[in-house]
Amino acid sequence: MDVLSDAISTMRVGRPSVSLTTADPSWSTEVEIFGGARFYVVTTGGMQVTGADEPAVTLAAGDAVLFPYGTAHTLANVTDGTARFLAGAYRLDQVRPHPLFQNLPALVRLLAGADRHRGLQASIDLVRGELDEQMYGRDLALPALLDVLLVHLVRACLADSAGPQATGWCVALDDKVIARSLRAVHEHPADPWTVESLGAHAGLSRAAFARRFTAMVGQPPLTYLTWWRLTTAARLLQATDIPLSAVAQRSGYGSAYAFANAFKREYGISAGRYRQQHRTDRRHSSEG
């Protein structure tokens, strides 16, 4: 998968939720901290959103706001009439967030516009249609549409964060050189990458590549490579029953011993114990 798809997939847990809420004049509510991301899209009227340690933002019809870290906030109708808005939530594993998500602001306002974030607006329309029309297949279609909507929300956040002075993932994914190396790491984590070979793949010298990658991604190339390899290993341990030696090989470790040491150093427990814990968690979830 591509980098953004991988970043979301490694963090997503459970099923997303969404509702269409009607707010009378003077309506307001306080929303507690949440283990994931929340979003709101105003469909009628206007709303004011105030985040912790953030200035209040006013949303008109078509505008959206995203709380990537689920921080506490307040919602209020700021019109004399009825307001309606979509309210959605995604559970995300924040114990080990992808660095891309750590670059996002705590509150992101996304303004509507004919030429802005067309994919986002189209996704919003599809989600709203499923909620309004109560069509057959809604229980299957809606979660899939919400996953698509999350991609467009994050894309819009990254696009709005970009600018002449911007750094970080909002520019890394659009930088052809760095994006090429990131994609190579994500698609082939088991390859014997070095800073020199990644630089050659991206079309830069070793030193120039290392400087550019570190400045944009916030980590040296091999530090990110190690992080992604162990993240890949954790996903394999959770989702498959393949032997630990195969997990080690697929995640770029030449021996099970080297993998075992690296995994325990990163996660604080052995790979086998990690797999056992997640099997227990999945069993309890299915029984509940």
Rank of each mutant, 00 (worst) to 15 (best):
D2Y: 05
V3D: 01
S5N: 12
S5T: 14
D6G: 10
V13G: 09
G14R: 06
G14K: 05
G14V: 09
V18D: 01
S19N: 13
T21C: 10
D24Q: 14
P25I: 03
P25E: 02
W27Q: 03
E30S: 15
I33E: 15
G35H: 06
A37L: 05
A37P: 00
R38W: 03
R38M: 09
V42C: 01
V49Y: 00
T50H: 05
A52V: 15
L59V: 03
A60R: 10
A61L: 05
G62Y: 01
D63A: 00
A64D: 02
L66R: 01
L66W: 00
F67Y: 07
T74F: 08
T74Y: 03
N77A: 00
T79A: 06
R84Y: 00
R84C: 03
R84A: 02
L86I: 07
A89Y: 00
D93K: 01
Q94V: 11
Q94H: 13
R96M: 11
P97H: 07
P97Q: 07
H98A: 04
Q102L: 13
L104W: 00
L104V: 00
A106Y: 09
V108K: 02
V108L: 09
R109A: 08
L111P: 02
A112P: 02
R116C: 09
H117I: 07
R118F: 10
G119Y: 06
L126Q: 10
E133S: 13
E133Q: 14
M135P: 12
R138M: 13
R138C: 11
L140E: 12
A141V: 11
L142Q: 08
L142T: 07
P143C: 07
A144D: 14
V148N: 12
C157S: 06
G163W: 06
P164M: 07
T167Q: 10
C170I: 05
V171C: 04
L173R: 02
D174W: 08
K176T: 15
A179P: 05
S181Q: 04
S181M: 04
R183F: 12
E187I: 05
P189M: 08
A190G: 06
W193P: 01
T194M: 09
E196M: 11
A202T: 03
S205E: 13
S205Y: 08
A207S: 15
R212L: 08
R212H: 07
A215V: 13
V217W: 00
V217P: 00
G218M: 01
Q219G: 06
Q219N: 12
Y224V: 06
L225N: 01
R229A: 01
T231K: 12
T232P: 03
T232V: 10
T240S: 13
T240E: 14
I242D: 09
Q249P: 05
S251C: 07
G252S: 04
G252V: 01
Y253I: 03
G254M: 10
S255V: 12
A258Y: 11
F259M: 05
N261R: 15
N261H: 15
F263T: 01
K264C: 12
K264I: 09
R265C: 09
R265N: 11
E266H: 11
Y267E: 06
I269N: 10
S270F: 03
S270I: 02
R273I: 11
R273F: 09
Y274W: 15
R275E: 06
Q277G: 09
H278Y: 11
T280K: 14
R282F: 10
